[in-house]
Design a protein around this nucleic acid. Structure first.
Lengths: 232, 232
DNA sequence: CGAATAGTGTCTATAAGACATTATACT
DNA sequence: AGTATAATGTCTTATAGACACTATTCG
């Protein structure tokens, strides 16, 4: 392959977002309704084109998070998922998308009237089952994002990113159950999370109907030793 | 953000390769000497620009594997590592690289005179320690690739991709030791690998100096239950 | 004192880590 | 017989999973 006087092809790059949160004990993903062709009127992951002025991929993801979802400040976790470059993934031509995974604590419905108009939380289950259709290859990207989140719950403190500043152990357990889609034994769960040094640290108490629950907040440890493994 | 009569920026996309193999019990990576600016004369990961004619990212990685390393047929494992898009990573301007991880069984020195001229196996340790310098952000990409390989050894049958068609258990053990950079107890290792159903299947015997070793080949199981975890 | 929710203790099975000996072939 | 390499068994410790009871608050 000679490189003399040959100029390489340039192409379009987008940043797409899998934004997960927990609503009413169910794993939800933020979707937007497309206002333009292609796939006009269909649901899709939030995202947009990469600006070329000195903007890192992660920075672009943060910008889209703000522009399309009004979630500039609230986010606790954002990481790259991977690049998607199937030549037929976008009917407009060759577009490579760099997908990112964002985790947000439980949030209200996005306000209409902003850039996030048409943005809606949808239960992940309904989307993965095909009940809600997604544009482009966004179903695959979502599936990869959910699997990434499930796997990271085992070895990292990601679960705390689904919670608010403080949380109870049973709230944390609900995170694991909702994301994994399985039930967890509370006794073994209490034992495990308290056995991981630096995972969660005590922070007061919470009044409930019944015995008050101890409150915790995220500790300094990012990786869990030993891991909290999912059954199977 | 209005999208009326605004055309999004196009940019350059490359495919870079972290090609790992085992040579003399040591983890090696394939590097090429750059023939053109920038970084002319320095070592870099093999890679090239993405062609825009109907070529998937993985297909592009396979093509570069052939063009730059003459490894079209030999490869047993190839997967995407991630996208690297720091605006300052390439002095020529905005270039996003989609990095891939390739695992090859032990191979001889690449032939000179081909497209792979200037390609050389280098011990990973020497590169990660800074003894051998890499162009662009390729050191970080390499580090990510090695960490990915180390992690995947635990939960997948990736280790067999470092071996030939058949291998002995102690050869397999050497793979784990070389990639992880730690020593492993042979007795516990034998017990573990044989306990994972479908990981390796018997395939004859191999004459050695001493008691003949049983030969195995890769089994059907891709994910390991229970995992072969690294110490630490 | 009863209802509601939070939190804990025990037993068993499975896996991990440390360690020494036996087995088979070749010279 | 000696040497070189392959393969295995046992003991101890740690972690996982199943399971039922005690603790604290409020009305």
């Amino acid at each position: 392959m000679s490189e003399t006087s040959w100029s390489p092809p340039t192409l379009l790059v987008t940043v797409d977002l899998v934004i997960l949160t927990l609503r009413a004990g169910e794993l939800n993903v933020l979707l937007v309704e497309r206002g333009v062709e292609p796939y006009q009127g269909e649901m899709a992951l939030p995202g947009g084109f990469l600006e070329h002025d000195g903007e890192d991929l992660l920075a672009a993801a943060h910008r889209e998070l703000d522009e399309e979802a009004n979630l500039a400040g609230a986010v606790l976790h954002l990481e790259q998922l991977g690049a998607y470059g199937d030549p037929s993934r976008d009917p407009r031509g060759r577009v490579v998308s760099v997908a990112h995974l964002a985790i947000a604590p439980g949030l209200p419905e996005p306000e209409a009237g902003s850039d996030a108009a048409g943005a809606r939380w949808q239960p992940v289950g309904a989307v993965l089952s095909g009940e809600v259709r997604l544009a482009f290859d966004h179903l695959r990207i979502l599936a990869d994002g959910v699997e990434r989140a499930r796997a990271k719950l085992e070895h990292t403190a990601l679960a705390t990113a689904f919670c608010g500043e403080t949380f109870t152990i049973s709230e944390l357990q609900q995170v694991y159950e909702a994301v994994w889609g399985v039930e967890v034994d509370p006794r073994n769960f209490y034992r495990k999370v308290q056995g991981v040094d630096g995972f969660i640290v005590p922070d007061g108490h919470k009044a409930t109907r019944g015995r008050p629950a101890r409150l915790f907040r995220a500790g300094a440890r990012a990786s869990l030793h030993p891991p909290i493994v999912r059954p199977g």
